[in-house]
Design a protein around this nucleic acid. Sequence first.
DNA 1: TCTAACCTTTACGTAAACGGCAATCTTCGC
DNA 2: GCGAAGATTGCCGTTTACGTAAAGGTTAGA
Lengths: 162, 162
Amino acid sequence: MNPTAPTQPRLLRIQEVASELGLTTRTIRYYEELGLLKPVARSEGDYRLFDPDDLERLRFIKGLRDDAGFSLAEIGQLLDDETVRTRNRARFRATADPAERRAIVADAIGRVDRQVASLRRKVERLEKMIDEAGDRRRHLESHLADIEAGREPADHDHGGTP
Amino acid sequence: MNPTAPTQPRLLRIQEVASELGLTTRTIRYYEELGLLKPVARSEGDYRLFDPDDLERLRFIKGLRDDAGFSLAEIGQLLDDETVRTRNRARFRATADPAERRAIVADAIGRVDRQVASLRRKVERLEKMIDEAGDRRRHLESHLADIEAGREPADHDHGGTP
DNA sequence: TCTAACCTTTACGTAAACGGCAATCTTCGC
DNA sequence: GCGAAGATTGCCGTTTACGTAAAGGTTAGA
């Protein structure tokens, strides 16, 4: 029909995906086994074939694992939301009813919001830890100032009884 | 000598520590086994005895584990710094030489800074993920607006070729 | 068409982070 | 000074997140 319109961007096999993302093939298969991922297709001879959406999803998983430090179980929770979101795109295209379409997209937004909330909670806890370190730092610096000024320790409080 | 000055705040045994912090005794012993912790003393009959510093250290470990999602190995790295910091307090009290004291405190500040840097890197990665989620959210909302307005999908880009 | 490179499932192995016994002390209140 | 409650070390078991090897089928190029 139209030889210059590659609507199918080309599907990748597992090793190509793995080296592209810095994962091992075993890891990818394991994630599929856990239900975190389902490659879009299989070849004639049953080879797994991955499309760009699959790659995006794997990058998302890797980010949650490496950067956010989530367990694969927690990632599974977040991805249940993601999965529904992806499925919703199909459901979305399958209907023309504006009300239904609105509901699907609104639901998707809710899921993204929940993901963000989960990430934000983690950020908040980390920032609390940073603040505490800041307290320690200030404590040490005032100590340092005392020394530079030749002052006595003045027993910089350590959280003891008043 | 002075019956109203309890300089030793009272040492706790492992079960008291565990229920105070929401850990198990097994976990605390395991952390000691890994070298993340060394209880300040042992009783006559070899019971582990913990002081407030030990508790603070355990809370720190728990925070890094639960909140920050660090592995115990990573926590070990951060705690090496912490350990030196604690030892430096003793070294600090042991000397009166201002130059040496200055060096000890300056070193301690460097260690705190490294801890903070490690935490900040993690926060930055998480915030990048939050931003990406924000992008997805905006994408969905413009979609929603199209629907509300009765517009056509306009093929909201999905990262394909131009 | 043949073969080297790649893939499949199956299955056993492992490091990390504990859980949960057993067998044996310690502590402490009555 | 005794008995229940709690602690000790030692050791085996478990879950998570993969590594790795075996035995065989698939793909693609010369």
